[in-house]
Design a protein around this nucleic acid. Structure first.
Lengths: 209, 209
DNA sequence: TGCCCTTGTGTACAACTGTTCACTAATGTG
DNA sequence: CACATTAGTGAACAGTTGTACACAAGGGCA
């Protein structure tokens, strides 16, 4: 029998999730991945898969959890670096695109999952987006930038912002990772979208009943 | 040998495309469909597939073409029914949700394809969205609703509108087709998004150089 | 020390996959 | 009418798939 590999606990699990992400990063769609394919990529025997996941959907769900961590890191960095309201949008978009580049596979997985075939993964990603939007709402309140909006309208605004950014993801991920010119284009366009949304929010008045 | 089925020309081709759509409509992801699976669903022998398509990507591309027709029908109806600028947004969103319901599988396919695994399909759908946005820009110009926007800013606005509506698609398609309450919610929220965007566009002024 | 539990391995199997091939029925063209 | 083209069929292939099973190595705990 081949030498059993010494592994620290949980290593194979990480390898399997990483392998799935790698395949996604190579252009494959998560829904089309198979157990054997993933274990092969991870350098592990197919049976090992079942020690950690019940099926591919299960693995997808656990990836969503990790995705949550990535998003939280991103938010923390944004909060630390975006101090004055002045260049708020530009800087936020910059941080976002930087993270999207650095964690390309993760964000690819997220973009795929939004219309994916596992309902659970879909809901998980939607949940992450909701959380993101509510955090954004908190920040805007704290910066006193939206005092004229009631909670419902602020929620609407933040939801729209998050959706717009998420959609930009599909633009960003469909271009080569090193095509700086096009990345700049996407960043600029996304900034324009957000500016327009915030202009709308600034002039928003509750539609009379 | 089994009785050869009499078919009108192109019928099998349509059946295969329809079968793929049916499977997508049942919750499967297009990227995970196989040739045998599709032919089985279509009630056709696997070899027949190759008479009409080179592979699944090819079938996907041809579906994108048909998707274009669906979108154009929708635009025509919108143009015919949305006459005064008054309830423009509400009515347009209504028409959109109605078409999304009526052609559920088609729009599911579209939502999946945006982050799908075939680059060609992805580009095709993107192209349809661009076309849609440019038509929208024409209409807004014709209705003289955006005289203060230059072409670039109008394009930005329309792009944002189309993206927002496309994203709403994923909301719409993730709820049961007969859940009228939730459909109403999505429609209302989408209307809110668009109103906010148009408020932004109305108060937009060219960012000084 | 002995024992259980978790994790990784190898083998096995039936089912399914994409694709090729040779054959045949119908259709259109001269 | 003859003939070329198109479109559907069935059998066959080698390779891959998900999953089950029995077994073994190592770690933690009494």
């Amino acid at each position: 029998m081949a030498e059993r590999q010494r592994r620290r606990p949980g290593e194979t699990r990480e390898k399997l999730m990483g392998a799935a992400l790698e395949l996604v990063g190579k252009g494959r769609h998560f829904a089309s991945l198979g157990i054997r394919e993933v274990t092969r990529q991870a350098g592990v025997v197919p049976t090992s898969f079942y020690r950690h996941f019940r099926n591919m959907d299960d693995l997808g769900l656990q990836l969503v959890d990790e995705l949550g961590l990535v998003l939280r890191r991103m938010m923390r960095e944004a909060r630390a670096n975006v101090l004055q309201a002045d260049k708020l949008i530009e800087e936020s978009v910059g941080i976002f695109t930087a993270h999207a580049q650095a964690n390309r596979s993760f964000f690819l997985f997220m973009a795929q999952g939004l219309a994916g075939e596992s309902r659970a993964v879909q809901d998980g990603i939607r949940g992450e987006m909701r959380f993101f939007a509510s955090e954004l709402a908190n920040d805007l309140r704290r910066l006193r930038l939206v005092d004229h909006l009631n909670d419902g309208d602020l929620d609407l605004t933040c939801d729209l912002v998050v959706r717009t950014v998420a959609f930009s993801l599909t633009d960003l991920l469909s271009i080569a990772p090193d095509d700086d010119y096009q990345i700049g284009q996407v960043r600029q366009r996304t900034t324009g979208f957000l500016q327009m949304i915030f202009v709308g929010a600034a002039h928003w008045q509750r539609p009379e009943a």
